[in-house]
Amino acid sequence: MINNAILFLLETTLGLLTIAFLLRFYFQLTKASFQNQFAQLIVTVTNFAVKPFRRVIPGLGKVDVSTLLLAYLTQLVLHFLAFLLKGFPIFVAGNTVWFVMLGLALIGIISLSLSIFLYAVLIQAVLSWINPHTPAAPILNSLTNPVLRVFRKYIPPAGNFDLSPLVFIIAAQLVLTTILVPLENNLLSIL
């Protein structure tokens, strides 16, 4: 019972931290303005780890490798601790468990990245109907525009409606449910 509570707290805390690292990475990658209050919150929350880590691992051009690696390491720690809490004999299970954990962490990063863009597109679509001039609109636009631009090349607007967000949401859900979840289950079945 107590292990389930600890596992829930770990998954929540480390999951949110991973999302914060990924948001910081994607904000920098998409050149979103950091003058927004939400972006400043993400920077403040992640500075404790990003600043020292950047001294060790510098970025590659405009790609902030250190922040992305921190997100991956956070997922790796989460899976390691989850295995320990579930009573899995990590240290005597052999090398396979380590490769499974590395794969699960990578799948976690990809899933969370897709979820970030999925919810950003969904929120942006809803806000465009309700209040298109909200303070969150510029950062959402900066974050989602590179992804939606790809879909807009192939999907013409229907009347005055841009259908690319809907197609992206369906495609992201399809990738999550048909590729990433089965891949995660296959990795777990190896153990």
Results as ranks from 00 to 15, higher is better:
2 I>Q: 12
5 A>Q: 13
6 I>Y: 12
6 I>W: 10
7 L>C: 11
10 L>F: 12
13 T>G: 11
14 L>D: 00
15 G>T: 02
15 G>Y: 15
16 L>T: 08
17 L>T: 01
20 A>S: 00
20 A>E: 04
23 L>T: 03
25 F>A: 04
25 F>L: 11
26 Y>I: 02
26 Y>V: 02
27 F>W: 07
28 Q>I: 08
28 Q>N: 13
29 L>D: 06
29 L>R: 06
30 T>G: 06
39 A>E: 10
39 A>G: 01
40 Q>F: 14
40 Q>R: 09
42 I>L: 10
43 V>N: 02
43 V>D: 04
44 T>V: 09
48 F>N: 01
50 V>D: 09
56 V>F: 15
57 I>D: 07
58 P>L: 09
58 P>W: 13
58 P>M: 08
58 P>I: 00
59 G>Q: 15
64 D>R: 05
66 S>L: 14
67 T>H: 12
68 L>E: 04
70 L>N: 09
81 L>P: 08
81 L>K: 01
82 A>Y: 15
87 G>H: 15
87 G>W: 15
89 P>W: 12
90 I>K: 02
93 A>W: 15
93 A>R: 14
99 F>S: 05
100 V>K: 06
101 M>N: 06
102 L>S: 06
103 G>M: 03
103 G>Y: 13
105 A>G: 02
106 L>P: 05
106 L>S: 09
108 G>A: 00
109 I>R: 01
109 I>F: 11
112 L>E: 08
113 S>C: 10
114 L>H: 04
116 I>L: 07
116 I>Q: 04
117 F>W: 13
118 L>Y: 04
119 Y>N: 05
121 V>Q: 13
121 V>L: 14
121 V>A: 12
126 V>G: 07
127 L>D: 08
129 W>P: 00
130 I>V: 10
133 H>W: 14
133 H>C: 01
134 T>Y: 12
137 A>C: 13
137 A>Q: 15
139 I>W: 10
141 N>T: 02
142 S>R: 03
146 P>V: 01
147 V>K: 08
147 V>E: 12
148 L>C: 04
148 L>W: 15
149 R>D: 09
149 R>N: 09
152 R>D: 11
153 K>C: 08
153 K>E: 13
156 P>F: 10
158 A>H: 09
159 G>K: 09
162 D>G: 05
162 D>E: 09
163 L>C: 03
163 L>Q: 03
164 S>F: 10
164 S>G: 08
166 L>K: 03
167 V>D: 00
168 F>V: 00
172 A>N: 01
175 V>A: 01
178 T>C: 01
180 L>K: 00
183 L>Y: 14
183 L>W: 12
184 E>I: 14
187 L>G: 06
187 L>T: 02
188 L>M: 13
190 I>H: 01
